[in-house]
Write a protein that binds this DNA or RNA. Structure first.
Lengths: 213, 213
DNA sequence: GCTTGAACTGAACGAGCGTTCAGATCAGGA
DNA sequence: TCCTGATCTGAACGCTCGTTCAGTTCAAGC
């Protein structure tokens, strides 16, 4: 029997807690915190606190912190590729580019979660993990490059270097998370329209000014 | 004995004096490492090792790690504002925009150091330090916004929301460091030409297709 | 040659890190 | 009702972190 003067503060498991609930919670918390503060600046204890659990419990859902980041990044990249394939790009390059832009923005900005981990965090992956994510990224960016190259060939795009232009387009598309906040002043539809407009114009030949008479 | 009225400016050690060597070295190492790996992922010991001293010696040149980041970011932002003012923007909005784009890219990508700390690292500043850097950033971005707004007013730019467009332009400009590497395949001049072209087209009205006869 | 002081070392500090694990808890099957 | 196993706690582990500081080094100035 524990004497009255010993403070026994028991408690281990919360009633009603299940892995089906905590698992996703861990992933969401990690995603949000990594996005906001960066991988290196976020501790496992912070993630745990956000979930409402002790740090040790996280290891029921991930073997370690690195794998947590890897899984999130890989699945995100995989999701982007799938979203792009599901968009079923067709028609002339101009139309395909518009579809790609819309699919990209909707996938990356559309979820209720509203956040996705910037590609800057790729630098925090081990080389082996980086390589796996890179494979997915290559597939994704090659799809865009093919559209750009096709447009350049047919002449509807004024593009000298398809590879360079693709890099710039990707950086423009991803740059959206430098300023866009879901629920903010600007609606997603507006963003989409803006980027379709800007990227379309950027890639097409310049306007020919009609000389004044 | 030196008379009281003579200002004795203590001379820096000449041979063997390292403070005027180590000082800049610390800043360069910190800048490079923060840029490459991010503030949180870089330890003072790593910076020291890069410089070639022990960690304790760094504190002769900075009161702490936070101040090191703050100083670098603040001076960088200050430099951008000065570079923009030195560019002496004039002429019609189109010309001013081109000058701004060129000045921005040359300042941020041009140095031999070749690196600059991405604005993402602003999140690692204390609120007080963040506010100081933010003041500079506001000056810089307002200058761009004024150009965009002037162009929109005069009708040379097809821009609905000057504030939104400015944000997008800034993100496009900064996006360059997602892929550009000094000394890489693409030369700075090419990048400059590309961005002047893309941003110019993005902001001007769309091309009016001449119907085929 | 001696003194001075700037530049730096090397060892230490408490705090926090990622990770492990024995033990506590409790829903649900037997 | 009891047992089992999934779920989680709480306390540790060795390590690295930012930072401090007494002591060492040595060129410069007298």
């Amino acid at each position: 029997m524990t004497p009255w003067y010993v403070l026994t503060v028991p408690m281990a498991r919360k009633t009603g807690s299940h892995s089906d609930i905590t698992g996703p919670k861990v992933r969401e918390a990690a995603m949000r915190l990594f996005t906001e503060h960066g991988y290196a600046a976020v501790s496992m204890r912070q993630i745990a606190a956000d979930v409402g659990v002790q740090a040790g419990a996280l290891y029921l859902y991930t073997p370690n912190k690195q794998t947590l980041l890897f899984t999130l990044l890989f699945e995100q990249m995989q999701g982007a590729v799938e979203a792009m394939k599901a968009a079923d790009l067709k028609g002339p390059p101009e139309a395909q580019l518009e579809q790609f832009v819309r699919a990209h923005l909707r996938f990356h900005m559309g979820g209720e979660s509203g956040s996705f981990i910037p590609y800057t965090e790729l630098r925090n992956l081990t080389p082996a993990n980086y390589e796996k994510v890179e494979v997915m990224r290559r597939i994704y960016e090659t799809a865009l490059e093919d559209i750009v190259a096709a447009g350049a060939r047919s002449g509807v795009f004024a593009v000298e270097d398809s590879k360079l232009t693709t890099l710039v387009l990707i950086s423009i598309l991803n740059g959206v998370l430098a300023w866009y906040r879901p629920g903010g002043r600007v609606k997603l539809d507006t963003v989409e329209a803006h980027y379709v407009d800007i990227i379309g114009k950027a890639v097409r030949p310049a306007r020919v000014d009609v000389p004044a008479e």
